[in-house]
Amino acid sequence: MNKPFWTKWRHLMFVLLVPLVTSGCGERYLVLNPAGPVARIEQRLIILTIVMVLIVVIPVIILTAVIVARYRDRPDRTAPYMPEWSESKVLEVVWWGIPIVIIGIIGTFTVRDTFRLVKPQLPEAPLTIQVTSLNWKWLFQYPDQNIATVNYCKIPTNRPVEFVLTSDAPMNSFWVPQLGGQEYTMPGMAMRLWLQADKPGVYFGHGANFTGKGYAKMAFDVVATDAQGFDQWTKQVKASAPPLTKQGYKNLTTKQDIVGKQEFSSFPPGMFEADIRINGGMYMKHQLKEATD
């Protein structure tokens, strides 16, 4: 290593920048391009944490480079050498203190947002969609509209949507990055995740927890349209699509395969709740209540 340390670092920085430059437009960063209030709260917290941690990261990296450059062992080195200097109360207090302050700030906002994201804050009644992850597809049931879809769902814009999540297969995770963070879908559990879209669009969703052979193909779309378009769509599905029978549901669950998008004009009442109950929900009374109330 003949070159000074920092020149190597400059090379490194260049390498790091290449992907940023070549990957093109920033819209591709779904997590950083929120399309609804939940994702926006999360994005703001992400940016806050990035800024806070950079307050430590950048100086430490610079400090490392400077110290290594300045105190390299060379014959003509004039920088001070104090082999026994190993204690300094002031310095120790400083670097116990800095991280404590930073963690304190991040922690405060973290706790605030954790509580904020439990329930929608809007007064409007949310639309409920019951989501079941299967091997290897997503089933969406609209209890109020009595329709069902597979591998995509439609939601109205500017209205909170309450997704009630479960699984009738190994645990998966329901994630629509532009609308908000994910939550697990688990057999025997009914968990709630509220999301909302501000503007019409097709939002990319994907299962985020590995469930076996067909898992990689478990993408789905969340299509947001205005309230009118949504009503029109439900009517159209009701009118034209076939019903989902018990046998049809059984085929969806037991055939471990990958299917395309599907619509159903109705589904057997209580199927979602019965599934949760038999997969273990009967031992978790509060879970079942959440699923059905």
């Binding site: 917290l45 947002d113 954790t114 908000g180």
Partner: peptide, 10 residues
Amino acid sequence: SAPTDYQYHN
């Protein structure tokens, strides 16, 4: 940070 982990997780 739990709320942001909802976006990074997995």
